[in-house]
Design a protein around this nucleic acid. Structure first.
Length: 589
RNA sequence: GGCCUAGUAGUUCAACUGGAUAGAAUGUCAGAUUUCGGCUCUGAUGGUUAGGGGUUCGAAUCCUCUCUGGGCCA
């Protein structure tokens, strides 16, 4: 808002002073080590002004100070014009936002565009691990951010519930399971199925190595392992709709879904619609003919269908195999069309790891070539892998950090730290448990969201999670402390008039006012990290203030009210920011 | 082999998308606070932004080559 006014006045200044329209104005926040609030970078203007930087800055500054009442002074350092905004202006702005509920949030209107956010999308042959958590947190948070930015958001996932990997778990269960169920064993459903996936791999490796001992080459052995053959046969039967296999498949997937439901509930994630690959994997077939008609695809002699993307610097890609079966690409096209029918979305975001970068590049390009205008609004939220100190996680090899287990660990850590501090003695056991999970989950979510999604992150389960510094609990703690202030001053009050503010207070107000810009920026760049880094800055500014400024013990009643009001607003924005990250904040901790 | 992607203090991350002396946290060291909540605050320490070359008023950011890690495709 303020920026807009300034920008307009600056371009006015340029056109008046130099009889010329400025192409772009570079206006940014002034760095802490210089005096001022906003800075105009004048270097790009020198071509127009034909003068040295200092003189140009001086002239524009002098123009602005006469035209804009809330500019109190300015200074010039080299090519940088630093503008100071008067304190009363900041106070007025703060009073304006103080009474606004949900400050910074854009309302969703009836005709707001629909944004589909796809995330999570697990396989049903194994439980969720740390890498999936990053996916879930990112997708869920982004959905919140887009919604706060005024978009209608629908959260969807596609569950990979069919294919050879599920058959592997099924075969192994038949072989070694002795009828074990989640109930009989007390094991969570997804973990139980995951156990047999690992069992399968163990058996498979045994068979391969014994075949090699008997004289097979490695390649032969890998193909002819009996248990693998059984899994492949099972897949064929599944595709034929064999009722026994279908029953088993439904039963075991049912166990997995029960397990997933628990995990989703624990991490506070939900969806508006689930798609199942078993229902969508045939969808893309009809699009193949259309593509051929439109000359986007072409048929080879063996009957397979391809698209040639070499003009775009990519290569040729199969759309339909010679045997008439579809590939992932075909299915994804079909699913996208289905979703368009279901939701008439304007934008779709796929939260998928960066190993699929190429796949999505191709997918979007194909959709565009097929003539779908919304293809331009598809975005692959590509995030980096979560690596362990020992390297990449591989569920087959058992080198994963299980999400459920790890979550428990986090919560237990939160518990032991809280107990050590001993501030919760009068809290009921139930409430306390809830709090530990808020803190533990907050630590984990914040840790994974504060990093730029694009970057891959190294994760040391033992050392990575901290409760001090730039962490979730640190922010939660600040919030709880503010709530404690409010509790200790129970009287109702209005903000006083005629207040003067300190530099620290001004700093906090500037941070607060920035909140709506931050949501905008986070939504545009599809990055929850923007919000995470923002709320940390705000909290740091507030803690610094809190440490040095008495609030409830301020020297006058008016000052108490103002400072308390400021604290309350900070608390509100912290809570709201954290909510955008999918993190709760406690009243006490 | 071809393509994509990343490389920033000891470590984990920033850097307003090309702007000022590259900032935080953590770690280490030194301090403050018998305070409205000690999960707080203030200092100090720590950098050839992987390396070379280029583009320009100005480069961590853009181009180019090399090295290293990760991924995708055959």
């Amino acid at each position: 808002m303020i920026k807009k006014i300034l920008e307009n006045k600056i371009s006015e200044a340029i056109s008046v002073l130099y009889k010329c329209k400025a192409i772009s104005i570079q206006l940014q926040k002034t760095r802490a080590e210089f005096e001022g609030d906003f800075t105009v970078v004048v270097f790009p203007l020198l071509k127009i002004t034909k003068q040295n930087p200092e003189k140009t800055a001086e002239e524009i500054g002098s123009y602005l100070i006469h035209k804009i009442s809330f500019i109190s002074k300015y200074n010039v350092v080299k090519g940088f014009l630093n503008l100071s905004i008067s304190a009363s202006f900041w106070i007025d702005k703060f009073y304006e936002i103080y009474s606004v509920d949900n400050f910074g949030i854009t309302k969703v209107e009836k005709n707001s565009p629909v944004f589909l956010v796809e995330f999570s999308s697990p396989n049903t042959n194994k439980p969720i691990h740390l890498g999936h958590l990053r996916n879930n947190f990112l997708g869920f948070s982004l959905a919140k951010i887009l919604s706060a930015n005024g978009k209608k958001v629908k959260k969807v996932q596609i569950i990979n519930d069919r294919g050879i990997h599920i058959c592997k778990s099924m075969v192994a269960w038949l072989e070694f399971g002795n009828g074990e169920t989640p109930k009989s064993s007390g094991i969570k459903g997804d973990h139980l199925v995951g156990k047999y996936y690992v069992k399968f791999d163990e058996q498979y490796r045994k068979e391969v190595s014994s075949l090699i001992k008997q004289g097979s080459t490695e390649e032969e052995a890998k193909k002819s392992s009996p248990i693998l053959k059984r899994a492949q046969q099972m897949l064929v039967k599944w595709e034929d709709g064999d009722s026994k296999i279908m029953d088993l498949w439904k039963t075991m997937n049912g166990w997995v879904y029960e397990g997933f439901d628990i995990t989703y509930k624990n991490i506070g994630v939900d969806f508006d619609k689930n798609y199942y690959e078993s229902e969508t994997y045939l969808l893309g077939k009809e699009i193949v003919d259309l593509g051929i008609k439109k000359n986007v695809f072409y048929k080879k002699e063996d009957g397979s269908v391809w698209i040639d993307l070499s003009d775009e610097g990519l290569d040729e890609k199969v759309i339909l195999r010679a045997d008439g079966t579809t590939v992932y690409m075909t299915q994804d096209i079909g699913t996208a069309l289905q979703r368009q029918k279901d939701f008439s979305f304007s934008n779709m975001i796929y939260t998928v790891a960066n190993e699929q970068d190429y796949h999505f590049k191709v997918l979007f390009l194909i959709l565009k070539k097929l003539g779908y205008s919304w293809a331009n609004n598809c975005y692959h939220l590509s995030y980096g892998m979560v690596d362990l100190p020992t390297g990449r996680m591989k569920s087959r090899e058992g080198t994963v950090v299980d999400a459920d287990e790890f979550l428990n660990e986090m919560i237990n850590t939160a518990k032991s730290i809280s107990k050590e501090l001993g501030k919760l003695e009068d809290m009921s056991a139930e409430k306390a448990e809830e709090l530990y999970s808020t803190i533990g989950l907050g630590a984990l979510k914040y840790f994974m969201l504060k990093v730029d999604p694009k970057k891959r992150m190294l994760f040391d389960p033992k050392e990575s999670i901290d409760f001090n510094g730039n962490t979730g609990p640190f922010i939660q703690y600040t919030y709880a402390r503010i709530q404690s202030l409010v509790r200790n001053y129970s009287a109702k009050f209005n903000l006083p008039n005629n207040i003067s503010i300190s530099p620290k207070e001004k700093d906090i107000i500037k941070n607060l006012l920035d909140f709506s810009n931050i949501i905008d920026e986070a939504a545009k760049s599809f990055s929850p990290a923007v919000v995470a880094n923002y709320v940390y800055e705000l909290v740091k500014a507030f803690n610094n203030y809190y440490q040095h400024t008495p609030i409830l013990k301020a020297e006058s009643e008016d000052l108490i009210k103002f400072r308390l009001g400021l604290s309350i607003k900070v608390g509100e924005v912290i809570k709201c920011s954290m909510k955008l990250l999918g993190i709760d904040v406690p009243q006490r901790m």
